[in-house]
Nucleic acid binder design. Structure first.
Length: 692
DNA sequence: TTTAGGG
DNA sequence: CCCTAAA
């Protein structure tokens, strides 16, 4: 949206970010008021969002010309208010009239209700519930009001102070300081308009065009400045404190911004949507699916022994379910994994289960509970770098985490212990920490940043700031002591590989080997290399990667399904599904492996066609990425494939034998109509002769 | 939600 | 794989 780059880093400069599409905006310049430093970012983003909206709806508003708005962005961070979405709430002109003080009125679609300050406006018919702030400035002109009336939709909440004074912070609202205002204005078009309207028009007509679909609440403060300032609506996050962190800020670690991998930001993307064009319905569905799927509980890996591709289908079937579970995230990555060879991984064998931590090339840690993977870039020496993203509406802060600091570990070993044992001990200590849950801590300039709700800017992280002092740490999470934790503690990143055995191998050697390259010093993980374009998470390399069948060539993001504690960690954001940015894109292609085909064939032989749901449950229960529709489609293609000349077939060759079975089953079920009548109408196809 | 098919 | 009409 706002591709405009962030003007100057400091925000002090007066640069106007270019708001891409906004036809006009509500921008005004104003005296910069010094508001709370904190919400700059938000405001900025809000602006962008508004601009985007304006653009989208530019046509609609007739009143649009009232360009100048003086606004100050007020961000409400306090959580005590309730935000409720409202459908167009029109402010009646009367309302405004009455309050001479009201410079402009913004009607938010969604406002915070029940605000204490609200009282002053209660009388207003429609604005009752809105949190309105009355600004002392009295610009409100009747005309304007009307416009407002018609246009509202901006989703802005005004806050009214009981005494009519403009208050930048009411009810805990923080206002963004001037810096924002400056930025906002620079759009050429806007300016011109501004000039025209400069007269005191404070209207927010333009704003009206913006609709806030979502209904985040916006609180706007109108400033009295003669200078035009922009009024930014603030969108509040319903949940207290979450605001800054989530909205519009995407921080990605070692990830390109084109995808949604920002860790901990998943939600943010979602939230952002509101400002985007409304997705088509179809997309919604997809998204929905994605969401539900990717966030589902991680499968348990334990039940199945190692599945070795080479060992064949037998074991495959035996463990089919399990395998699928793991497999789902996997296959794709194989190739990717290779790309990430530089990534450093530490795996450690802890009894039967092994834990491993690896640095993923791409995504990082998800919130508190996500995987531990971190992406590190090996390129430059700067531990963290930040740079703006040219086209992002919001400048992106890119971080390259070179290393993680682990919480203090206290280790005691005899002098006679071997280096290897010491390493192992360290590993165990680390693992113990990890096993009990860890969280990521952030340190800036040596200071811990504890407030998760702050925006990066607020925390001092911006593309312009020096992030060399930014560090992340892994710390024990006391809050989440793993309850019934499965023995498998951090299989995390690696969880996905179906074929691969649990992670143990790779790393272990490293530790034992005398001088390891990348010694595992206290700091546990870390190093990363970046694979820059790839986004996959994990990379556990195992010897058998090569065996993977059907490795998918193209890079797709893996979906790490950390099996850690199923209970609490169960929810893993697999936001990785990258490639598709938010709006639904097509799913990443995941060719069926021979094993899957066989499983499919077997199921169909048994159940027949027409019962894809059952087929899915029978053979692909845990393969979340395979829907019954997929299975049906696959069957369709298999039948087709089987009927064409081998030379015309593409993709991974399917054993002849399987194709024959496909034909046989297809033929059989064509005659026995499995579907229709009740479930077991027909007997399963027996045997399959593979010959021929 | 599933099926069944076309795209 | 996606999208949908139907069921």
């Amino acid at each position: 949206m706002v591709s405009k780059k962030r003007l100057d880093c400091g925000f002090n400069g007066y640069r106007a970010p270019i708001v891409p599409r906004a036809p006009r905006s509500i921008r005004r310049r104003g005296p910069r008021k010094k508001l709370v430093e904190d919400s700059k970012l938000c405001a900025f983003e809000l602006l962008a969002a508004v601009a985007g909206k304006l653009l989208e709806e530019s046509e609609s508003s007739a009143s649009s010309n009232i360009a100048e708005l003086k606004v100050q962005v007020g961000v409400c961070l306090d959580g005590d208010e309730k935000v409720q979405p409202k459908e167009d709430i029109a402010l009646k002109s009367e309302s405004f009239d009455r309050g001479s003080s009201a410079e402009s009125a913004f009607v938010p679609e969604i406002c915070v209700q029940e605000h204490k300050l609200l009282s002053s406006f209660k009388e207003l018919p429609q604005a009752e519930n809105d949190y309105v702030v009355d600004h002392s400035s009295a610009y409100a002109s009747p005309d304007r009001v009307k416009k407002i009336d018609s246009d509202r939709k901006l989703g802005i909440c005004e806050e009214k102070n009981s005494d009519g004074n403009t208050t930048s912070k009411i009810g805990g609202c923080a206002c963004v300081d001037d810096s924002f205002n400056h930025k906002v204005e620079s759009e050429p078009e806007v300016q011109s308009e501004n000039e025209k309207n400069q007269i005191g028009d404070l209207s927010m007509a333009n704003l009206s065009t913006v609709k806030d679909p979502i209904g985040e609440c916006v609180n706007t403060d109108v400033l009295n400045n003669s200078e035009s300032s922009v009024q930014l609506p603030l969108y509040r996050e319903p949940i207290a404190g979450a605001f800054s962190r989530k909205h519009w800020n995407d921080v990605k670690l070692g990830i390109r911004d084109d995808d949604e991998n920002s860790f901990g930001c998943n939600k943010s993307s979602t939230r952002i949507r509101p400002f985007r064009p409304q997705p088509r319905i179809g997309h919604r569905r997809i998204r929905k699916m994605m969401m539900s799927k990717y966030w589902k509980a991680a499968p348990k890996l334990k039940d199945c022994e190692l599945y070795n591709t080479s060992e064949g289908m037998k074991s495959f079937y035996r463990c089919r379910k399990n395998i699928y579970a793991r497999e789902r995230s996997q296959r794709v990555p194989l190739k990717k994994r290779k790309l990430s060879d530089h990534s450093f991984e530490v795996a450690y064998d802890q009894d039967a289960s092994s834990d491993s931590i690896s640095n993923l090339p791409e995504k990082g840690v998800k919130g508190d509970k996500g995987s531990l993977a971190m992406v590190l870039h090996r390129d430059n020496g700067v531990s963290t770098t930040v740079r703006g993203h040219p086209k992002a509406k919001d400048p992106r802060v890119k971080l390259s985490i070179k290393s993680f600091k682990v919480p203090e570990l206290y280790i005691e070993v005899p002098e006679t212990a071997t280096v290897g044992s010491l390493k192992r001990t360290v590993m165990e200590a680390v693992t113990a920490i990890l096993g009990s849950g860890i969280r990521v801590g952030m340190v800036i300039q040596g200071k811990k940043v504890r407030d998760d709700s702050r925006t990066l800017q607020q925390a001092g992280i911006s593309q312009c700031s020096n992030l060399d002092n930014l560090g992340f740490t892994l710390e024990p999470s006391f809050t989440r002591v793993s309850p019934s934790v499965t023995p498998i503690k951090l299989p995390a990143l690696s969880s996905f590989d179906a074929d691969q055995t649990l992670p143990r191998s790779p790393a272990t050697p490293m530790m034992d080997s005398g001088i390891s390259n990348t010694s595992v010093d206290t700091p546990v993980f870390t190093k990363l290399d970046d694979v820059d374009n790839n986004k996959y998470i994990c990379s556990i390399k195992t010897p058998d990667d090569a065996l993977m069948d059907g490795a998918v060539p193209d890079s797709k993001p893996l979906v790490p399904v950390p099996p850690m504690n199923v209970e609490e960690l169960a929810i893993v954001p697999a936001n990785l599904k990258p490639k598709r940015s938010e709006l639904s894109q097509r799913r990443t292609r995941r060719p069926f492996s021979v094993a899957e085909v066989e499983a499919l064939v077997e199921a169909v032989e048994k159940l027949g066609t027409g019962r894809w749901r059952d087929v899915k449950m029978l053979a692909f229960e845990n393969a979340d990425h395979r829907t019954y529709v997929d299975l049906k489609d696959k069957w369709k293609t298999l039948v087709h494939t089987a009927s064409i000349a081998p030379q015309q077939r593409r993709g991974e060759p399917v054993p002849h034998e399987l194709l024959n079975r496909v034909l046989s089953a297809h033929s059989y079920w064509s005659q026995h109509q499995s579907k229709q009548h009740g479930k077991h109408t027909a007997e399963p196809l027996k045997v399959v002769d593979s010959s021929s």
